[in-house]
Nucleic acid binder design. Structure first.
Lengths: 346, 346
DNA sequence: CCGCGATGAAACATCGATTGTTCACCGTGT
DNA sequence: ACACGGTGAACAATCGATGTTTCATCGCGG
């Protein structure tokens, strides 16, 4: 490995001078000719500053962390892309952690392990938290230590900057569309606790939309499930079993991860989409084009949320004051034909 | 931040003694009572060894890198899960890099940038390379520097340990199945250069299987495309346009990323799967259950490849001699009904 | 009663880079 | 000729932790 000392020796100066020349240190000057000698030597030797030494001294790792539940959930892959882009843009490294993978170990909760690793050991300068598995109190204690943190797709208790989208409006748009088609028995499959407060906001939007049209939201029509295709399948079966007397004519899937299992369950029950039941997913993803049948969705900018969160975090690390952002992009309907007018009641 | 010095002061010893006590350094002993005082102090203060200081001294970062092209490709998410599991198992951190994201910048090739960052700056102890974008010569130069490296799903020139699966057998299994159904005009959509030598081996298996049954493999029946749904769509159209006189009755998709676009293209051409054309994907993924129609596949253990690669790398870092591994698991056919006997020629 | 080998812990050097301080030297003004 | 400001570069401390060496102390045998 080529060290700064090697460059300095080659250029006939001391390491400190070499360091200043290579970084263009503004607080102290280096002679033009000397600087050139140093730069040439560094190039010839293929020198690159060692990250450990530098970080130890500067107390900056140049690395940010990203906590996601699981990269099987493609929504989080989009968020990840955004954060990664922001990191690259500011010449930082990104340490992605799939929190679910830490769930196995007997000792300690997953977020505890992750927290120790990334924060207490000083591996990252800050974190984007895209996982609702990090309890509010852990978040709070990090915030209390002034550890740079940005939440994405979740607001927490408001003490920590966050990036969210118009979840409530998105859910209301869903209701508008379905009611517009004539649906009155509208059901939903919501994300369980791991969905965090984004799920809560979507549900709130759903309630508001339904109430605006004078519709009830009886608990039997609204189930929660874990984000996976199995979760979607089980939820659909549960939904139809609980409401056998008056089954829903339209179902809102509050996570696209439900889509595959939900479609399977609906097929298994001998129902057709959209003839027998309308289906609407959220948030949009290119993948919904190719399900059987293609799924209409409501789109919100997940990737941009990641990007904004990354940028916000980097500004926060840079010492700036930042405030929470709700992306102003209005949610929009993506029609792929999975909704239709309800069958008239027999 | 709590430093070792703070613990030492609290326990009334020097940092070095505290360090030894906390790590249980076998080369030098610490009195039982002193050790207990130190451990108590560390617990009370919530001390955790700082990763930068430790790594600088020990010349070990406890971090391994993983290069993947893009996490949109779910095959690589599986590999990632495996590598991450191996990392956790050995208490290491994982630095995932999506190489595609570095493609944008004008300056320097993507692998050059990644290489500088991860290797030359000393951010990782070793890398799992799951991306064919890293040129053989870069690999070679890393290998020459004895930098710990393991290739996954690719063999390179044999100088570097690798983990692969039975790609050739998988492709032969495809041919066996299709020929067994009576197909003779078998086409394939292969991965382009980014597929690396795994693509080459699959193609070799295809050729061997076809030849064994006395079948030709005219170039018009075998196209390459970039891994994406668009790539699949374009490839299918190209395939049918080139072979209008005698269109294929069965198509092998050498990457599941082709599936969505390919199904779309086939629908758009007014063809049905499997009545008009049989379709077979690779490698298997839970996702193939839910396409329209569900896709039969050949399964190989992608996640295990990642896990093995991670373990191999960690052993390599530990100083062990390791050799390349081909996972012995035989590829197996997963029937979801997307293949059928070909239509008799009119 | 002296010395010797264990034992336990302090002192010191080191990893690679950055940064505050010191210092030699130059030309210039008086 | 002397003091002085300014320049360019060396010196040394530091970041946090980990070896490596050194050094007291104690028990015990000779």
């Amino acid at each position: 490995m080529v060290r700064l000392k090697d460059v300095a020796t080659a250029a006939g100066v001391t390491p400190s001078t070499a360091s200043r020349a290579l970084r263009g240190d503004p607080t102290q000057r280096v002679g033009v000719e000397t600087r050139q000698r140093i730069i040439d030597a560094a190039r010839d030797l293929g020198y690159r500053a060692n990250y450990l030494g530098r970080s130890l001294r500067t107390q900056r790792t140049g690395t940010i962390g990203l906590l996601v539940p699981n990269l099987d959930l493609f929504t989080f892959v989009e968020v990840t892309h955004g954060v990664q882009a922001a990191a690259i843009e500011s010449d930082h490294s990104l340490l992605i952690v799939e929190v679910d993978q830490f769930r196995r170990e007997g000792a300690g909760s997953p977020h505890e392990l992750v927290y120790q690793r990334l924060v207490e050991e000083g591996r990252v300068d800050g974190m984007v938290v895209g996982s609702a598995t990090l309890d509010d109190d852990v978040i709070g204690s990090l915030a209390a230590r002034a550890f740079p943190l940005v939440l994405v797709n979740r607001r927490g208790d408001g003490q920590v900057p966050s990036v969210t989208c118009r979840d409530e409006d998105a859910a209301m748009l869903v209701v508008e569309h379905l009611v517009g088609l004539g649906h009155r028995r509208i059901a939903s499959v919501n994300v369980d606790v791991r969905g965090g407060d984004a799920g809560t906001r979507r549900r709130a939007g759903l309630w508001r939309g339904l109430e605006r049209h004078g519709l009830e939201h009886p608990p039997d029509y609204h189930v929660s499930s874990s984000m996976s295709d199995e979760g979607g399948r089980d939820a659909i079966h549960a939904l139809f079993e609980r409401t056998a007397a008056a089954p829903p004519t339209a179902i809102f899937l509050a996570s696209l991860t439900f889509a595959l299992g939900a479609l399977e369950a609906i097929r298994d029950r001998g129902l057709r989409v959209p003839e027998d039941v309308s289906l609407l997913g959220f948030p949009d993803h290119s993948f919904a084009r190719h399900t059987n049948p293609p799924l209409s969705t409501v789109a919100v900018p997940m990737r941009r949320m990641g990007e904004e969160a990354g940028r916000l975090l980097l500004r926060l690390i840079g010492g700036a004051d930042v405030t929470s952002v709700q992306l102003p992009d209005p949610p929009h309907f993506v029609d792929r034909g999975s909704t239709a007018r309800p069958q008239p009641d027999p």
